[in-house]
Lab assay of single mutants.
Amino acid sequence: MQIFVKTLTGKTITLEVEPSDTIENVKAKIQDKEGIPPDQQRLIFAGKQLEDGRTLSDYNIQKDSTLHLVLR
């Protein structure tokens, strides 16, 4: 499925993911596309910070959802 990741600069990254993918996995995909190390990434969805060990389906993230990427 496709999800979107919006950065603070207003750029939107499109990712191909599975509901069973972990947040860690998603961060690795963002690193592949953007070169941002996962340890600098914070992903936010519906006002919640997403934890590495959980999956997209744990957070009820569905296709065409938009996550927000904050760098630390």
Rank of each mutant, 00 (worst) to 15 (best):
M1I: 12
M1E: 09
M1N: 11
M1W: 03
Q2K: 07
Q2W: 08
Q2H: 12
I3W: 00
I3A: 02
I3P: 00
F4W: 07
F4M: 11
V5F: 10
V5N: 00
V5R: 00
V5I: 09
V5Y: 06
K6L: 10
K6D: 14
K6E: 14
K6G: 09
K6P: 02
K6M: 15
T7V: 13
L8E: 15
T9A: 13
T9L: 04
G10E: 14
K11F: 05
K11T: 10
T12E: 07
T12P: 10
T12K: 01
I13R: 03
T14E: 10
T14V: 07
T14F: 05
T14S: 10
L15A: 12
L15G: 00
L15E: 01
E16I: 13
E16V: 09
E16R: 08
E16F: 03
V17K: 00
V17D: 01
P19A: 12
P19D: 10
S20D: 10
S20P: 03
D21H: 15
D21N: 07
D21E: 08
D21R: 03
D21V: 11
T22E: 05
T22Q: 04
T22R: 14
T22S: 12
T22I: 06
T22A: 04
I23Q: 04
I23E: 01
E24L: 03
E24F: 06
E24W: 11
E24D: 06
N25F: 06
N25Q: 15
N25S: 15
V26F: 03
V26L: 11
V26Y: 00
V26M: 06
K27V: 11
K27T: 15
A28I: 02
A28P: 01
A28N: 11
K29T: 07
I30S: 01
I30T: 02
I30E: 00
I30Q: 00
I30F: 09
I30M: 03
Q31T: 05
Q31V: 07
Q31N: 10
D32A: 04
D32R: 11
K33E: 01
K33M: 08
K33A: 12
E34L: 06
E34R: 01
E34Y: 05
G35P: 15
I36N: 07
I36A: 08
I36L: 05
I36Y: 06
I36Q: 09
P37F: 08
P37V: 12
P37I: 15
P37Q: 15
P38V: 10
P38T: 10
P38N: 15
P38Q: 12
P38E: 14
P38H: 06
P38W: 14
D39K: 10
D39N: 04
Q40K: 07
Q40F: 07
Q40L: 15
Q41M: 12
Q41R: 08
Q41W: 13
R42N: 13
R42F: 14
R42V: 12
R42S: 15
R42Y: 14
R42H: 14
L43N: 00
I44M: 14
F45A: 11
F45Y: 09
F45S: 11
A46P: 01
A46R: 02
G47E: 15
G47K: 04
Q49R: 03
Q49L: 05
L50F: 03
L50A: 02
E51Y: 03
E51T: 03
E51L: 03
E51P: 03
D52E: 07
D52V: 06
D52I: 10
D52N: 14
G53H: 12
G53F: 14
G53R: 02
G53K: 14
G53V: 08
R54I: 13
R54P: 15
R54T: 12
R54N: 13
T55N: 06
T55Y: 09
T55G: 11
L56N: 01
L56V: 12
L56K: 00
L56S: 01
L56P: 01
S57P: 05
D58S: 15
D58H: 06
D58E: 14
D58N: 06
D58K: 04
D58Q: 08
Y59N: 13
Y59Q: 12
Y59M: 14
Y59A: 03
N60Q: 15
N60F: 02
N60M: 07
I61T: 04
Q62K: 05
Q62Y: 07
Q62H: 13
Q62W: 10
K63H: 09
K63D: 15
D64N: 06
D64H: 07
D64E: 04
S65E: 12
S65Y: 11
S65P: 02
S65K: 05
T66N: 03
T66M: 08
L67N: 01
L67W: 01
L67V: 04
H68P: 01
H68G: 09
L69P: 00
L69E: 02
L69S: 02
V70N: 13
V70G: 04
V70L: 09
V70R: 13
V70F: 07
V70E: 15
L71K: 14
L71R: 08
R72D: 15
R72K: 08
